[in-house]
Design a protein around this nucleic acid. Structure first.
Lengths: 211, 211
DNA sequence: GTCTATACCTTGATAGAC
DNA sequence: GTCTATCAAGGTATAGAC
């Protein structure tokens, strides 16, 4: 599945890039289990016994695949950030104008935060609980994510399409809208991730377009 | 200090309603200490020993004032939600038009999430870790907070000032922008809470105004 | 209301058999 | 690679003196 198809429209029926490969190996099953537990109760409230039980292993079985609980969090966080960044870069590359690029990136970003809300919660809320070195590495990916949108806003401002006072501040506000989706979205919500994505894409365009 | 003065302008130098009374009693000192610890490391990662030490008490001293760690979280969460709701209601009441009301409420809400970012993080991120009964009660306050903004958007839509397709969805998006401020704001950030508030107020107006 | 001392439990992680 | 058994540390909360 190529993102190219969904990037422009923002409402294609196929799922976005999965932030993980599903259940292929035992390590993947452990990541799956840990995502569900971390998202539900937080990193520190989750025990390695919870994770092992959900993955169908004994408590000791976890440590064959990950040296510590924090390494498991890091693996999940890394995969999640890489998936999100890749998705944004593809969406930006496939868009002919800054307006299209903004709609596609913010729309897909919001959609991703709904579709993979458990992964997103771990990515966004458990990030501060990484070890120092792991956090530094992830921070680099976060800056790249920010830069994708900042570059679009700056290009649109220079081209005269956008009316923006402060590009970094507006980047933050626009990403905030999308990130916060994972806080309130869950499986009970009636609206589809595609619908959320397309409306957030439009909101972002509205927020910056010259009138 | 009345909020009436800051509600309209959104950039007055006085601080917004404190979500707590500072250091008056031992219970307040414990709340202060717990806010710092919960905001920094999360509810479950914080030990009652951490809180007691920061408040200058022995580990056992906490239980004279709060029956459990969760009750301490509830007390903080309740005060925080009440302060935020009161602030929004005053800001809305002091505004003559829907546009002014939206600018004032969203602006002050964003400003509050910067100025009291530690309190806000506890309010927003530790909410799921409350006990069932406590969570239900807080949920009621959250619905009232939502309603303040939803009512403003609906009034502006009916009056023809705003161009909104879906009022509940737009309410969510606008509040999301402001709530997410507490995720990235901290004492290192150069921008003042007042400046954040006034620019987020403008962004909200831009997002819904008929052009 | 605050302390010291401690009960009792759960935790992350390891040892060693299979 | 998975298990059972277990450790050492640290957790929340309580008892009882002052």
């Amino acid at each position: 599945m190529s993102l190219a198809t969904s990037a422009g429209a923002g409402n294609s029926p196929e799922r976005l890039h999965s932030p993980r490969v599903l259940g292929t190996t035992t390590a993947d099953r452990l990541k799956e289990a840990a995502i569900i537990e971390f998202a539900e109760r937080g990193f520190h409230a989750t025990t390695t016994r919870d994770i092992a039980a959900r993955a169908g292993l004994s408590p000791a079985g976890v440590y064959v695949h990950f040296p510590s609980k924090e390494d498991l969090l890091y693996a999940i966080t890394l995969t999640g950030h890489e998936a999100a960044l890749e998705m944004l870069q593809e969406a930006a590359a496939d868009s002919p104008t800054p307006t299209d690029a903004l709609r596609a990136t913010v729309g897909n970003f919001a959609r991703w935060h709904a579709e993979w809300f458990r992964d997103a919660r771990v990515v966004q809320y458990e990030f501060p609980h990484l070890s120092h070195d792991h956090r530094e590495h992830i921070l680099d990916l976060r800056k790249q994510i920010n830069a994708v949108v900042a570059d679009i806003l700056e290009a649109g401002r220079v081209a005269g399409d956008f009316d923006i006072e402060d590009v970094p501040a507006t980047t933050l506000a626009v990403l905030s809208m999308a990130v916060d989706v994972c806080r309130w979205y869950d499986s009970e919500i009636r609206r589809s991730p595609e619908s959320i994505g397309s409306s957030y894409g439009e909101l972002a365009v509205r927020l910056v377009s010259r009138r």
